[in-house]
């Protein structure tokens, strides 16, 4: 059973090797001409504002909201997959359960929708 995953690992190794090789090789293959401006963050020619230093930047709330909603729906999917695979075995009982489950999430979805959680201005 685990054998089936071996090709996956091989593929992974090859792709990773290729990627790593590329990023490592890049500085050596290309030319190097020093220019202070090149090392600045790109800001359409003006001095870069110091605000969004890596990691310290403020991120608009809407993105967090999207991320949270994604997590919720993703989790919903996590349950839908096993159900889908076993639908015949689960029968009517499973169907009722899953409809209830989806309906529950749908309530929350309706709430988020109504309260503008899905709006991007």
């Amino acid at each position: 059973m685990l054998d089936l995953y071996v090709p996956l690992i091989v593929m992974f190794a090859l792709a990773a090797a290729f990627g790593l090789f590329s990023v490592t090789a890049a500085p050596f293959i290309g030319p190097r001409r020093y220019n202070r401006a090149k090392l600045d963050a790109y800001e359409c020619g003006i001095e870069p504002s110091p605000q969004p230093i890596a990691g310290g930047g403020r991120i608009p709330v809407a993105y967090y909201l999207t991320a949270m909603l994604f997590i919720l729906f993703d989790i919903e999917m996590v349950f839908l997959y096993p159900f889908a695979v076993n639908i015949d075995a689960l029968g009517l009982f499973g169907l009722v359960e899953i409809v209830l489950f989806v309906a529950t999430v749908a309530f929350a979805y309706a709430y988020v929708w109504r309260r503008g959680g899905l709006d991007w201005s």
Binding site: M68, I71, L72, I75, V78, F79, P82
Partner: peptide
């Protein structure tokens, strides 16, 4: 699975 769900819900609330 259940733990994952709970963890996700926790993430949402915590964040």
């Amino acid at each position: 699975f259940f733990v994952m769900v709970v963890a996700a819900a926790e993430v949402v609330v915590g964040l």
